[in-house]
C-alpha cells in the first residue's frame, strides 16, 4: 500500500514544481511567445503529472480506465491548443510590426 502512495507523492511534487516554475515564468517573460512557452509548460506538464498521480491513487477500475482515456486525449488536445495559440500570435497585429522592425535590421527573415 505504501509504494503506491510514495510514487503518487513523487509525481505530485514533480507536478507542483513544474507548476510553480511555469507560473513564475508566466509573469516574468515580456514577450507573448515566451509567456506561451512558460504557460503551456506549466499547464501541460503539471496537469499530466497530476493525472498520473491520480491514476495511481484511483480507487476503482472504472475510474482508472477513464483516467487513461482522459490522459490520452489530454495529451492530444493541450499541445495542439498551444500550437494554435502560437499560430494566432504569429498572425496577430503586433507580430507583424515586430517582423517589420526585425526585417529592417536583419535581411534574412
Amino acid at each position: 500500500m505504501m509504494i503506491k502512495e510514495v510514487v503518487a507523492l513523487i509525481f505530485f511534487i514533480i507536478g507542483s514544481a513544474f507548476g510553480i516554475v511555469g507560473m513564475i515564468g508566466l509573469f516574468r517573460f515580456k514577450d507573448p511567445y515566451s509567456r506561451l512557452h512558460a504557460g503551456s509548460l506549466c499547464g501541460t506538464t503539471t496537469v499530466f503529472s497530476y493525472l498520473i498521480a491520480l491514476l495511481i491513487l484511483s480507487p476503482s477500475i472504472a475510474i482508472t480506465s477513464r483516467i487513461v482515456i482522459l490522459i490520452i486525449f489530454f495529451l492530444i488536445s493541450a499541445p495542439t491548443g498551444s500550437s494554435i495559440v502560437s499560430k494566432f500570435i504569429w498572425e496577430s497585429e503586433e507580430a507583424e510590426d515586430q517582423r517589420r522592425s526585425m526585417q529592417k535590421e536583419d535581411k534574412s527573415l
Binding site: L26, P32, R35, L36, G39, S40, T46, A78, V85, F88
Partner: peptide, 19 residues
C-alpha cells in the same frame, strides 16, 4: 496587455479546470 497573452492564459486555465 494583448489578446495573445489572454489566449495563453485561457489555454492554461482550461487544462487546470480539467485537472
Amino acid at each position: 496587455p494583448s489578446a495573445s497573452d489572454r489566449l495563453v492564459a485561457m489555454n492554461v486555465l482550461s487544462s487546470i479546470a480539467l485537472a
